[in-house]
């Protein structure tokens, strides 16, 4: 029989509601109704051997301390897996359940599972544990237990879970290699036919969520503006001194172009591996227009060209990385008094 530890909040532990949300973590003397519901669903294959609770406010206000204590209690039970929640749409409970599930998995190497409503802020942990979508209130308990119990059993047995759309947990964003029976071309055409027919289909590569920002006000006087050049086209000094990867770039480069009037094939090149590099290597101004910017600077059409340009390779580069690069060098550009940026992409 597989051993499972259950994490819940003070409410499901029967301690009380909001007025008792400040209770520290503790192990229950006897497992509560919610744990018993899971045990019934396991049909003798697994058993919740201990239930640990913590007040939601206590957890939110003392997260690190509470996590340590909870992890220690769970470790002492030596379980095969851990269930947290379900938390439905309770925000602090979801935060605690997601946190406990993520920490137990990361620190103790024990598989974990939680459940909550899709809008619960605790769903931020969906890449760090397995989260089953539930209804938004405790009225959905029976449904949540029915969905969570089979997955909990699989995890307790050390079985690999199938993809999220088969098993019914939330999309984790983690890709795994697997062998498909049909070749890619056939799968793509099948998907297209379904799409054309208005039938549901599941993409094999969901697009990331891109954010939107309000447009900045225009530059008041371009003839006084300091303008910087940035590129995702991989323009770097010859030899690619920072070793920016030709795809899936993990970093960017910052290059001094003081006194550089134009880029040449002897001094610059592209590091990009996703387009034919012949034209950019022949004349890197085709990607990063330093020559024209210098002319405009000389003619007083712009204030000045910023002394540094920033470059990375936008070829399969993770959106999260690209965002991190720009967040970092945008601060430098601001500190350097740059008024506007021209970003070229290939």
């Amino acid at each position: 029989m597989y051993k499972i530890v259950h994490y819940i909040n003070q409410f499901y532990a029967g301690i009380g509601g909001e007025d008792h949300a400040d209770v520290p973590p503790a192990k229950m003397a006897e497992i509560p109704a919610v744990s018993k519901a899971f045990n019934a669903a396991f049909k003798g294959e697994a058993e919740i051997v201990a239930t640990i609770y913590c007040g939601d406010s206590y957890f939110a206000e003392n997260t690190d301390k509470a996590l340590n204590e909870i992890c220690e209690m769970i470790k002492a039970e030596n379980p095969d897996m851990v269930i947290a929640g379900p938390a439905f749409n309770a925000g602090r409970y979801g935060f605690a359940a997601g946190n406990v599930a993520a920490a137990v998995k990361a620190q103790l190497g024990i598989p974990t599972l939680t459940g909550m409503y899709e809008e619960n802020p605790g769903t931020d942990y969906k890449s760090k544990t397995i989260i089953v979508p539930t209804k938004n209130s405790a009225a959905g308990m029976r449904d949540a237990v029915a969905k969570m119990a089979p997955l909990a059993l699989k995890l307790a047995k050390g079985e690999e879970l199938g993809p999220y759309y088969v098993e019914g947990y939330m999309y984790t964003g983690i890709r795994k290699n697997l062998f498909e029976e049909e070749r890619g071309a056939k799968r793509a055409v099948d998907m297209m036919l379904k799409k054309l027919a208005g039938e549901p289909f599941i993409t094999e590569f969901p697009m990331p969520n891109f954010d939107r920002v309000a447009p900045n006000p225009p530059v008041a006087d371009i003839t006084k503006a300091k303008i910087a050049l940035c590129t995702s086209g991989g323009i770097v000094p010859k030899g690619n001194p920072d070793h920016i990867e030709s795809s899936s770039a993990s970093h960017y480069g910052k290059y001094d172009i003081e006194g550089v009037q134009y880029l040449t094939s002897e001094t610059y090149q592209t590091a990009h591996g996703g387009y034919d590099p012949v034209y950019a290597n022949e004349d890197p101004n085709r990607v990063l227009p330093v020559d024209v910017m210098r002319d405009l600077e000389r003619e007083g059409k712009i204030g000045s060209l910023h002394r540094y340009f920033y470059a990375t390779v936008g070829n399969g580069t993770a959106v999260a990385n690209a965002k991190k690069f720009a967040a970092e060098y945008a601060q430098e550009l601001k500190a350097d008094g740059v008024d506007a940026v021209i970003l070229t992409s290939t």
Binding site: G233, Y275, D276, P277, V278, Y279, A280, E282, D283, N285, R286, V287, L288, P289, V292, T344, S345, T346
Partner: peptide
């Protein structure tokens, strides 16, 4: 909008 993927700001 620019010219082409491998030479956005040029035309060989």
């Amino acid at each position: 909008p620019t010219i082409a993927i491998p030479h956005p700001l040029g035309n060989p």
